[in-house]
């Protein structure tokens, strides 16, 4: 069953479809939240909140056919950061995530793809890895990261950009 079919079933109130969706992405969502929050209880809360959002408003995601996995990862990450910061600044970003041509539904958890991304990740410098980890999982801005790594915000920005570019190339290869 594709993500689109699952969302249609959830829209119709099918609890089994919701269980299938959780089985498909629950671990990924939880591990993302845990990486941000480093607290199993809070990570569980973040995951519950995001999945309940899907349960309550599945139609909100139907238009993003095929990109549910990436939406989930980013949404859980943003929700986890919100829990850390106690702010809702990221809501806007969550809502603006858009559809993309390729089917992300299965690709993020596809082992081959993960291996390919992991290989590209190994090609990143330690500075790039650190910057990306601090920005994505800890929500630190370029100035904060620069303060930690004793470099300039411009260098951090360039480092983040080149890291994402490398990963994109690996995905699009």
């Amino acid at each position: 069953m594709t993500d689109t079919q699952l969302l249609e079933a959830i829209t119709a109130g099918d609890q089994t479809a919701m269980t299938t969706l959780f089985d498909r992405y629950g671990t990924l969502a939880y591990l993302t939240a845990l990486a941000v929050l480093e607290d199993p209880g809070q990570a569980e809360d973040a995951v519950h909140q995001i999945f309940l959002t899907i349960w309550r408003q599945p139609a909100g995601f139907s238009s993003r056919n095929g990109s549910l996995a990436s939406w989930l990862v980013i949404a859980v990450r943003n929700r986890a950061l919100d829990i850390r910061r106690r702010t809702t600044r990221q809501e806007l970003l969550e809502n603006l995530l858009v559809a993309e041509p390729r089917n992300m539904g299965r690709t993020v958890e596809d082992d081959f793809l993960i291996e390919r991304i992991a290989a590209s990740s190994n090609a990143l410098s330690q500075t790039q890895k650190d910057s990306l980890t601090l920005a994505f999982f800890k929500g630190l801005n370029t100035a904060d990261i620069a303060g930690r790594s004793q470099t300039s915000p411009e260098s951090v920005k360039a480092s983040l950009c080149s890291a994402v570019s490398t990963i994109r190339k690996a995905l699009e290869a």
């Binding site: 990109s67 989930l72 990862v73 858009v98 993309e100 993020v108």
Partner: peptide, 14 residues
Amino acid sequence: LAAVDRALAGWSAS
């Protein structure tokens, strides 16, 4: 932006 999101999501999953 969607492509960047996808790269970030994929990287974090890895």
